[in-house]
Computed example of a mutant assay.
Amino acid sequence: MITDFHTHVDEAEAFGWIDPPEKILGLLDEAGIERAVIMTYTDLPGLNPGALEYIVGAANQYPDRLIPFLRVNPNHPRVMPELLERALAAGVRGLKVHPTTTLAHPAAEPTLEVLRLAARSGVPVLFHCGDDPYTTPQTLELAAQQVPDCNIVLGHMGGYFHVTDAIEAAIRQPNLYLETSAMPYPEMIRQAVDQVGADRVIFGSDGPGCNPRLELAKITSIGLPTEQERLVLGGNAERLLGGTAA
């Protein structure tokens, strides 16, 4: 089973984001991808107070295909414990944090408390990891060091200019995972598998902004051994999400 660990479903008309679940499902079908993690473009608490209900509702429409993550703004520490408890009770399976949109430093106390809450709840945290402020691998490694029992996924595995840094951070820090979406160098995925291990590299597409079929080809074109490819394309995601695949 192929699981896409990074896609978006949202209908925030004020921002021009009209991506209902059917849009990503069509792209997944074209690519032959069975399941996907979904998240909104907006952060909670934030401009869209119904984001939790929306993402859970979208997943409930297609329970065999879509897995809800809650995108959170750590800058509301008094709200966060109740929000996360409500999200987990509603069926959310992980969290997304985008430090650039929230301006919440990953290694500052509000974000660290979110990571501790996630660790206690047994759910992973997907960070935007790239070239923009507060998202470089070096910065996210500081957070991973302080909450070593939280499984932290580096979305885009460093973006365009920090891919080597992301691999090196994951070598040093065993709770860091590398997610492949929108990172333009397929050969670096092989390097990550060789240096970090196939069990900590995870396929993601960042669809619908990026085409899942093309993102999937980055994995299938580099000639990984069958077992390593199986882990990258779904086994690792299922394990982090609480499934039985290894």
Rank of each mutant, 00 (worst) to 15 (best):
Y62R: 00
R65N: 02
L66F: 04
L66K: 05
I67G: 02
R71W: 00
R71T: 07
V72Y: 01
R78V: 06
E82W: 11
E82K: 08
L83S: 01
R86T: 10
G94H: 03
K96R: 13
T100P: 00
T100V: 13
A107F: 05
E109C: 01
E109Y: 14
T111Q: 01
L112A: 06
L115S: 03
L117Y: 05
L117F: 03
A119Q: 12
S121T: 04
G122M: 07
V125W: 11
H128S: 05
H128M: 02
D131C: 08
D131W: 10
D132F: 12
P133H: 12
Y134D: 01
T136M: 09
P137I: 04
L140H: 11
L142I: 00
A143G: 06
A143E: 07
Q145M: 12
D149L: 07
N151T: 05
N151K: 15
I152M: 13
L154N: 07
G155R: 02
G155C: 02
M157D: 09
G159W: 05
F161A: 14
A166E: 08
A166N: 03
I167P: 02
I167F: 12
E168I: 13
I171W: 10
L176C: 11
Y177I: 08
T180G: 08
S181D: 04
A182Y: 08
P184G: 12
P186C: 11
P186G: 13
E187A: 13
E187I: 13
M188P: 00
M188N: 04
Q191N: 12
Q191D: 10
A192T: 07
V193E: 06
D194I: 12
Q195W: 14
D199F: 01
V201M: 08
V201L: 08
V201Y: 04
